[in-house]
């Protein structure tokens, strides 16, 4: 059956790149529908709520007992409102973000590969690049939800509970740092996750590999660094590598910066190749 379009009517079709957003939106919708996601998200929010409360408490104490400010600042160095505060918060979100991403990766991309959902997308005007970008965008937004967004809220809270004019005018660069580190996390971790999910769509092997990368390798890197007294073993910790690159957004330079750049860039390039190769393979197979 065909539905002819009347000759005097014209249909406007948006460029195919616009399809990236609906793909991401659908993927996010799939994740948000699961109760387990909200359970994990609640756990992820605990650290944020703790920081939020601590900043509020600190501001109250500063106002009511100005004489103890120095003592408080010395005691709670991580809550001094500098870039380190937000950088450390985003680093600390690593474990729960990792668990959340393992779950999300399986739901938003794993099912497409294991149950033939990819055909549904590729039978439209979109190609594998648009599909991959849509999924990456969804993963990036999820990462932002547990790292960048809460860090920005903490930044706003810190400024608004003190002298907003001074804090925001002096430290506006921190906001760019948070966004920069968040974007870096989204791209690097998102690419790695999508590559793993493409090749390992079943949840159990995916979870094990993901756990291996973000728990096993860091412990291994710690043991090796201590034993051989060589900090370069620390580069095995991928989340830490991204942190080292992210700290550059806050103006801090780590001695392992070059090594971390090499690891993150290498992993990202390998991930891109793996994703494209796998998607093309699946496209031909279907």
């Amino acid at each position: 059956m065909s539905l002819p379009v009347p000759k005097n009517e014209t249909t406007t079709v948006r460029p195919v790149w616009f399809a990236v957003w609906p793909i991401a939106r659908t993927a996010l919708h799939l994740v948000f529908r699961r109760k387990l996601f909200w359970l994990l998200f609640a756990v992820a929010s605990m650290s944020f709520l703790f920081m939020f409360g601590a900043i509020y408490l600190l501001a109250t104490l500063r106002q009511q007992f100005p004489q103890v400010e120095k003592l408080l600042t010395n005691m709670l160095k991580d809550l001094d409102g500098s870039g380190t505060t937000y950088l450390n918060f985003m680093l600390a979100q690593g474990t729960v973000t990792m668990i959340l991403l393992a779950f999300a990766g399986s739901v938003l991309a794993g099912n497409d590969h294991s149950r033939g959902g990819l055909m549904f997308y590729l039978s439209r005007r979109i190609g594998i690049i648009h599909y991959a970008l849509g999924k990456l965008l969804a993963i990036g937004l999820l990462i932002s939800l547990t790292t960048t967004l809460p860090a920005l809220v903490l930044f706003l809270e810190y400024g608004l509970l003190g002298e907003p004019g001074d804090y925001f005018s002096e430290k506006y660069g921190i906001a760019f740092g948070i966004v920069g580190y968040g974007a870096l996390l989204s791209v690097a971790v998102g690419l790695l996750l999508l590559a793993l999910v493409s090749w390992m769509p079943r949840p159990v092997p995916l979870v094990m590999l993901w756990g291996g990368l973000f728990v096993f390798l860091p412990v291994l890197s710690e043991i090796l660094s201590d034993e051989f007294d060589n900090s370069h073993w620390g580069l095995l910790n991928f989340w830490r590598d991204v942190y080292i690159l992210g700290s550059r957004c806050f103006g801090e330079v780590d001695e392992l910066f070059e090594g971390a750049t090499g690891v993150v860039a290498g992993v990202s390039v390998c991930s891109i190749i793996a994703i494209l190769f796998r998607l093309r393979q699946l496209q031909h197979r279907s």
Binding site: R34, L36, I99, A102, F103, S106, P203, V215
Partner: peptide, 12 residues
């Protein structure tokens, strides 16, 4: 989705 629950338990 027991795997994810188990992972959250084991690692958190």
């Amino acid at each position: 989705r027991a795997t994810f629950l188990a992972l959250a338990y084991a690692l958190m």
